[in-house]
Amino acid sequence: MSRVGVGAALRWEVRKLRAQLRARAVLVAAVLAPIPVVFILHGQSRPPKDTLFGRFALENGFALALLVLGFASQWVLPLLTAIVAGDVFASEDQHGTWKTVLTRSTSRGQLFWAKTITACGFAAIVLLLLTASTIVSSLLVVGHQPLTGLSGQTIPAATALKLVTASWATMLPPMLGFTCLALLLSVWSRNPAIGIAAPVVIAMVMQLLGSLGGIDAVRPLLLSTPFEAWHGLLAAPHFTGPLTQGALVCAAWGAVSLLGAYLVLRRRDITGG
């Protein structure tokens, strides 16, 4: 029975996820929630001037999509991914099912990778849906006028669409970083509530730290900083240094989190259930 690989466990994880109301609700919310947000922002009489791209958000769809991006990256994205990643290991503790799945022909390592891949895949899909829904509804509701960039340059609509999409895409590395962090917390705490809530709290604390002065050495190492790396794409001339650095920081956070999670899961005694 050693033929069983990660693939079978992965299929099982995906099946379970599809049966979970919570996971389905997140996907539906990723598609639907941006629509009222866009309408409400568009209906404001005064633009949110002190937010990035807020000044133009009422008359420019691209600016509005970037305004939503800035907001989503503060804690919404960590929350959306943690809803699955923070639960995926701890729910086995909650239901007492570790002993059920670990007495078949799938090893702890195989289950670990199946769950990790499931959570990362879910994060990517949520981001994709949220990106598509936000950009499409912003453009439909507000329009696709040329965008004024961060250096005051005018960006033609076709280029603006590419840059806005690319900006949303740069959310993927930090979102996966938070996914791995949530996986670690899920394994370690054995408690879905902690697995889901703690990454959100950590994200907010990091945001706060990042906004403080005098910690310039630490700021690039925070997992929340790469959420802002897209700013460089909208400057003239554009710069991608923060993106590269951010990707490395996310990879480091992800690798350390996964290694920790793997070791904890491999070594722990399954006494509950």
Binding site: M1, R3, V4, A8, A9, R11, W12, R15, K16, A19, Q20, L21, H95, G96, T97, K99, T100, V101, T103, R104, S105, T106, G273
Partner: peptide, 26 residues
Amino acid sequence: GFIESPKFYPYLTGRQNLEGLALLDG
């Protein structure tokens, strides 16, 4: 076999639980 009282995923049916375990059996 099983240890203490057997545990399953409450949000799945009995058959779905068994189908999943069969997957993990290969």
